[in-house]
Design a protein around this nucleic acid. Structure first.
Lengths: 224, 224
DNA sequence: AAATCATAAAATGTATACAAAATACAGGAG
DNA sequence: CTCCTGTATTTTGTATACATTTTATGATTT
């Protein structure tokens, strides 16, 4: 529990949002560890604000599944067991399949071009050896598909699910031997969308998520 | 905006939770209408509490998608357009399909018996002509499947999606001519699970949700 | 009559104070 | 030494006060 947290003071955004973003980042980066208590007074002192915005930010973290609070006992950073991860990945698989199927019907020519360059950017990023960059490029690829699916609620859910496994995903992307497979899968998905071959893209996406599942589960097992 | 709201004072539950439940009910029952502003001071006065628990309850309503807040402008009851409803139903379809497939693998003998009686209860409820009862029995049927799927996060999501269309669902269940179809579909799903025929249950469930989609969309169109 | 601006009223944002509950801790009993 | 138990401390829950922003009002101008 280091003294790292600092607010990214954006004059106008309500403090609860600034605090929320700060805590969210800290949780995703692992600075606040799973199971760690989120004590209002302490956080308030560290961030130099009152308890009010802290409390509201915590309610918002619950919304994202990043914190769990027990009445009159306080909040802690959400823990994630292997089973939890399996559960999340099952859902992601179903929703990613849905997203790519919807995208198949609705994607525009322009969005196809954007997706193509996202595929290319991802390939390039893997050559940079910068895991953070790789992760970002991967997010961009999937976001392009989500946008094409034209279902904001679905996009929201998927972003949220992705966030819940962020920490493990970063670990996952450190394994450079996986890059060729990932690149190939991205290409396959892109080409399926280009041909608007719904069955093919659905299958490719399911495979893509399934591969992640296997690796991520291994990572969790190793950690224990 | 009637003076209806009253707190169900449960001595121990934090006020934010009591307020949350109260407002949630009011929104689902239609006492607080889509687009209506949720003003803290006013709600606080009506419910006889301070603004603090109101504010936290509003944050929690956002979590459920029942309220939307704009910084420095306040919260309002979430509106739902036909497109929103379509989006929700697409997601529901995918996740209900997932749930029933998972249930196919995991459902126990005991849970099968419970599901059977849920099917029977639903049939009986339709004879009662009490829409509220019918809705409850329908919820019980689906919950039995969700429980069998053994994925709490999935159950959570599905309950949440169901909640978001509660008002329309009740309208939907007022149409008695739909009952025979519903009963037949429930039976079909149950029998598929009994045979553990994954393809059959998935198909039956997709059909079931699709039928709802058609009817609910008609209802929305009529309202406009 | 419509538009604009100044001012007043009301609403949200934040901090703080006090109450109630949970936790930690020390001392004593067994 | 372990287990209670009661007290002190910490933490959460709630109300309230004040600051800031938004919204409403109404007079004034065109």
């Amino acid at each position: 529990m280091t003294e790292k947290l600092t607010l990214n003071m954006n004059a106008y955004l309500p403090l609860r949002d600034v605090v929320f973003n700060t805590l969210r980042e800290a949780i995703l980066k692992g600075e606040l560890k799973p199971g760690e208590r989120l004590m209002e007074l302490q956080l308030a002192a560290r961030l130099g604000v009152s308890r009010t915005p802290i409390r509201e930010a915590i309610r918002m973290l619950e919304l994202e599944g990043l914190a769990v609070t027990i009445p009159r006992k306080g909040a802690q950073v959400a823990k994630m067991t292997e089973k939890d991860m399996e559960d999340v990945l099952q859902i992601r698989q179903a929703l990613d399949e849905l997203a790519v199927k919807l995208a198949c019907d609705k994607i525009t020519e322009q969005q196809l071009r954007q997706l193509k360059s996202a595929v290319r950017d991802f390939e390039e990023s893997t050559r940079s050896r910068d895991v953070k960059k790789v992760a970002q490029a991967d997010v961009a690829f999937h976001d392009a598909i989500y946008k094409a699916a034209d279902n904001p609620k679905l996009m929201n859910l998927l972003n949220n699910l992705r966030e819940q496994m962020y920490r493990y995903r970063v670990e996952y992307l450190k394994d450079e031997t996986a890059y060729p497979t990932l690149i190939a899968e991205h290409r396959e998905i892109y080409e399926g969308l280009l041909r608007r071959d719904k069955e093919a893209v659905a299958q490719a996406m399911v495979k893509h998520v399934m591969n992640q599942e296997i690796v991520v589960k291994n990572i969790i097992r190793e950690q224990e």
